[in-house]
Design a protein around this nucleic acid. Structure first.
Length: 961
RNA sequence: GCCGGGGUGGCGGAAUUGGCAGACGCGCUGGACUCAGGAUCCAGUGGGGCAUAAACCCCGUGUGGGUUCGAAUCCCACCCCCGGCACCA
């Protein structure tokens, strides 16, 4: 009865309407009802696909809702336009990166328009424009002025594929974030931002952010705060070697020291006879890629440098080693090694024959003793049994497990049975060796040696064993007790012996401070942000090197330092353009050279949200008053892949600018929502590489060679040829269908697979919706607006109640944490179904129907704005959808309806009773009504009613016997 | 290994946060229209029992236990999956 749905025609009509009518232009001076909504701006690479759409469609829906709620919404868009892909294109095809980028930007903008996704285009920015990067350079200068940008020689990550250095964050796991190539280490002089100065604040402020927990956790892990102590050891010659440890309570168990191979003292301390080997090892360590070095699978390596250190707590003389498992970049680049209580040190000590001294009692209070066959006199098993010890006897050997408290009693007993020339051990809180003539403890390096010597003397077969630990390791039974890294009571620890595990670290730290040999210390995993990039397509670092004046910042009034226009970009970027490099010194006017590195593109994107406030201001990066009024961003939406990089850098820049006096807030994004990616099958043929899904026939074979294809469902990407283009789909079904399906697919924070069938479901719904509404609108256009819900017939009252419930459910999703528009749309579908049923039953109430249609159009409008705008214009109320108030929910409406109350009998639903709202809402009346209902009485016949629980409006639960 | 998030039909997922499990959609099955349909429309669809049907009953939210009149939801133990980090002292 309605018209056929023709989205092409409808969408063409409204495509430019919303922007032209100015609904999306924020009034920047009105901050009373402001709402700053922000999508992460894209890197404009090639054409957008339906996966990109998810982000922007979600934002557009939220923005439209907020506008109808009367907010002054700022929802700007811009382009993260500097970057490697553009430059690589340029090098390969001779296109200027700007041209390539601009072409892609145009493509994105066209796509947004087709999608009906509107932004405040007056505020568009592109980071590659001089009017933008002038201020990126300005920020660099400000940081430099305040010591937050500095140049230093450091070991850095270098990606041979991208031909540039990378920040730690961009080389996580030893691989280039962009191309996955293993990074190499190089020692270079580069520019850094001192993000570590903000480590503590970056960590602490996370607590108050309304961000997803997993993102906060990732940042916490990345910052990696740990508390402990710095302890000063000395070499035998007196050189101070400071170590950082999180376990000062294990200090008495240090049996060696390890320095990072690059540690400056290595040179000085290495004994002449060890030098060749040490140099060799240093070369070996430097040669490894980060991936190799970080591999935990790898066996420990290292060399002794021929020098000894003195443990300040007990004067023990311990050897100094170098090993690549100690990193120069963390802590002090040197560690004390406590093999008894650190897994890495244990592995190292076992391999290199270094003693292990237990200094922390293992939790659990159990000890073990293995008594070898033939080492004891007859009668021991019986004596043990009689004394109540638990043990197993296998092939004449005894495996005793005892409580720590029984240690003394056990030793007294077993000692009487041990044959001269033999021994047994008690392994637990401390290791004790029980000989027939003595009991020896392994509580220090000397004691360890004494025990070992004695055992080796008594038992020739173990003369190859270098340490007690190595000897004990042979006994499978003991293995789980030789090493542990838990907290426990301190043992063998001089004055602190006996300190319980829960205060051990604190008490030891205090003691160290009293003794003046150590200090409480905090360390972070976070390292300074390396921002230099040896590339062309980025913002030039505004620095000049003068032989006379040294490092000279480019004066503010000379900004921007423009990228030179060149015919063709070479592999060496700016360094191979003499016109750029050669300049004059701003200070002395003499000849000078420009810095040829450009900044990491993450610098560009670390402040763009500030620039939207005054995007075209040529005098300052942002208006201080407005920026403080509009920020922090109220809602920031983007992919979780930026959880560390972009989001951490932005937080740092915001805090730095605040401390420099430019901002009054310290966090840029008050609330963050991360949406999941859209995935699609990608097909891989070992010979023909990626195969577009459209070419893959039944059976998943390669169309070229017939080979079986490898299928993986992954995020859409151009390189894997598994993108779904919005163009064809909009051509066929219209943008509203894509929008509706995109939001209906599932909860937006979750990753989800695109499905053509699912899309058609949205298409079917919109057809039905369109036909229903266009059929009825002409008949209700002139119906009265006002009506009395209470006076409606029952079916109409039910529809009225359902409408109000629907408004409530849709509104709730906009106001919720999760933006569950899948549920909101389901509610709209449900109501549409209910409306169809109602209309099928007979003559509708015209006023109610008009109201239902009206609200329905408004409710669906954020999701499918085209169809909504078209239907609205036909309803004849005038104005545009975005000028209407969002429908409100009437609590009273539901009360007009009879309520169906489920009745549980012994926990199972046995009946349903329909009752008027006021009866169901009153506990007493409800109880009475239910108990007198026919179907309930049937179930109660002949049984004793024990208890009645009546929950008003919900249910009644009966307990019977 | 550590941290974070999860396990609900064939699938994506709902369930007003302790109150009718499986909304809505996809898929599937049957039917209608049709030369045809991978288009559209209608009906059915958690598993099982009973079975002509209505009705009724049992089981069921990863597993085992607990709290409660009542548990997908709360507590305890365990299993599995996903994501992040991982020689950071």
């Amino acid at each position: 009865m309605g018209e056929p749905y023709n989205p092409k025609e409808i969408e063409a009509r409204w495509k430019d309407f919303w922007w032209e009518r100015g609904f999306f232009r924020a009034d920047i001076h009105d901050t009373e009802r402001k709402f700053y909504y922000l999508n992460m701006f894209p890197y404009p690479s090639a054409k957008p696909h339906v996966g990109h759409g998810r982000n922007y469609i979600l934002g557009d829906a939220i923005t439209r809702y907020l506008l109808m709620r009367g907010y002054n919404v700022l929802n700007p868009m811009g382009w993260d336009a500097f970057g490697l892909p553009a430059e690589n294109q340029a090098i390969r095809h001779g296109i200027h990166p700007r041209d390539w980028t601009m072409r892609n930007i145009a493509e994105f903008k066209r796509q947004f328009r087709d999608w009906g996704v509107v932004f405040d285009w007056d505020r568009e920015i592109a980071t590659c424009e001089p009017e933008y990067y002038k201020w990126t350079q300005w920020i660099f200068l400000k940081l430099y002025e305040h010591g937050l940008a500095y140049r230093a020689e450091a070991e850095v990550n270098y990606c041979p594929t991208c031909d540039t250095v990378l920040a730690n964050e961009q080389a996580a796991g030893g691989r280039c974030e962009r191309c996955n190539t293993p990074v190499e280490k190089k020692t270079l002089t580069q520019w850094f931002f001192r993000i570590t100065a903000y480590a503590e604040e970056l960590l602490r402020d996370l607590d108050d952010l309304d961000w997803p927990e997993h993102v906060k956790t990732m940042q916490r892990n990345w910052i990696g705060r740990s508390e402990g102590a710095n302890v000063v050891f000395r070499s035998e010659r007196g050189d101070e070697i400071t170590v950082f440890t999180t376990r000062p309570d294990t200090l008495w168990g240090a049996t060696f020291m390890v320095l990072a191979p690059e540690h400056p003292l290595v040179e000085k301390l290495t004994a002449p006879e060890r030098r060749a080997e040490v140099e060799e090892y240093k070369r070996f360590a430097a040669r490894q890629t980060e991936v190799e070095r970080l591999s935990t699978e790898k066996e420990k390596t290292g060399v002794f440098i021929g020098a000894y250190a003195v443990n300040p707590v007990n004067g023990a003389r311990i050897p100094i080693w170098i090993a690549d498992y100690v990193l120069m970049t963390y802590g002090t680049g040197a560690i004390m090694a406590v093999p008894a209580h650190d897994a890495r040190d244990f592995e190292f000590a076992l391999k290199f024959g270094i003693p292990v001294i237990p200094v922390i009692a293992p939790p659990g209070g159990k000890a073990k003793s293995y008594v070898m066959a033939g080492t004891y006199r007859e009668g021991l098993p019986g004596a043990l049994r009689e004394a109540g010890f638990a043990f197993e006897e296998r092939d004449g050997a005894l495996y005793v497990t005892l409580d720590e408290g029984d240690r003394e009693r056990y030793i007294d007993l077993v000692r009487r049975y041990i044959l001269p020339g033999s021994w047994t051990e008690v392994i637990g809180a401390g290791w004790q060796f029980v000989f027939s003539d003595s009991v020896l403890n392994v509580g220090s390096i000397e004691e360890e040696k004494a025990v070992l010597d004695k055992c080796r003397e008594l038992e020739p077969s173990i003369r190859d064993k270098r340490t007690v630990a190595e000897m004990l390791w042979e006994v499978e039974f003991y293995r789980d007790l030789l090493f542990h890294d838990q907290r426990g009571t301190m043992i063998n620890s001089g004055p602190l012996t006996g300190t319980p595990g829960d205060e051990a670290v604190k008490r030891t730290t205090e003691w160290l401070e009293e003794q003046g040999i150590g200090k409480f210390a905090v360390n972070y995993r976070l390292r300074d942000w390396l921002i230099s990039r040896q590339r062309y397509w980025g913002a030039p670092i505004p620095i000049v090197y003068c032989d006379k004046c040294g490092i000279v910042p480019v004066p503010e009034e000379e900004l921007p330092v423009l990228l030179p226009e060149v015919e063709r970009i070479g592999l060496k970027g700016l360094a191979e353009i003499p016109e750029f490099v050669n300049t004059t010194c701003p200070t002395c006017g003499g000849p000078a050279r420009r810095e040829t590195d450009t900044m990491d593109t993450f610098v560009d994107s670390s402040w763009y949200y500030l620039r939207y406030i005054s995007p075209h201001d040529d005098d300052k990066p942002f208006d201080p008053e407005l920026v403080n009024a509009w920020l922090p961003v109220d809602l920031y939406v983007g992919g979780v892949e930026h959880a560390i990089l972009h989001l951490l850098y932005s937080r740092f820049i915001t805090k730095a600018l605040r401390d420099l006096g430019y901002l009054s807030f310290g966090e840029p994004f008050a609330r963050l929502f991360t949406q999941g990616m859209i995935t699609y099958p990608a097909y891989w043929c070992p010979e023909h590489r990626w195969i577009p899904p459209a070419e893959v026939a039944e059976g998943k074979r390669c169309p070229h060679c017939g080979r079986d294809l490898e299928v993986s469902v992954v995020a859409m990407s151009k390189s894997k040829l598994n993108v779904v283009s919005p163009d064809e789909l909009i051509e066929r079904y219209g943008a509203d269908t894509e929008r509706l399906y995109t939001l209906f697919m599932g909860p937006p924070e979750k990753e989800i697979e695109w499905s053509e069938e699912g899309l058609r479901g949205a298409w079917r719904f919109l057809n039905r919706f369109w036909e229903l509404l266009t059929g009825w609108i002409p008949r209700v256009k002139d119906a009265p607006a006002a009506f009395d819900p209470a006076a409606l017939p029952e079916a109409a009252r039910a529809l009225w109640a359902k409408l109000n419930e629907t408004i409530h459910r849709v509104t709730r999703e906009f106001e919720s944490e999760r933006f569950g528009f899948n549920v909101a749309i389901a509610a709209i579908m449900e109501f549409t179904n209910a409306l169809e049923d109602y209309l099928a039953k007979g003559e509708p109430d015209p006023a109610l129907l008009r109201r239902a249609i009206r609200d329905l159009i408004l409710l669906i409008s954020p999701f499918t704005p085209f169809i909504a705008e078209e239907l609205w214009s036909r309803l004849g109320e005038g104005g545009a959808v975005l000028e209407q108030d969002w429908p409100t929910y009437d609590e009273e409406a539901l009360k007009l309806l009879a309520v169906e109350i489920p009745v549980q009998i012994n926990g199972k639903v046995r009946a349903r009773v329909k009752l008027p709202h006021d009866v169901a809402g009153d506990a007493e009346a409800l109880k009475e009504a239910v108990l007198s209902a026919e179907e309930v009485r049937r179930h109660l016949a002949g049984r004793e009613l024990v208890k009645v629980i009546a929950v008003p409006g919900k249910l009644v639960s009966l307990v019977v016997k």
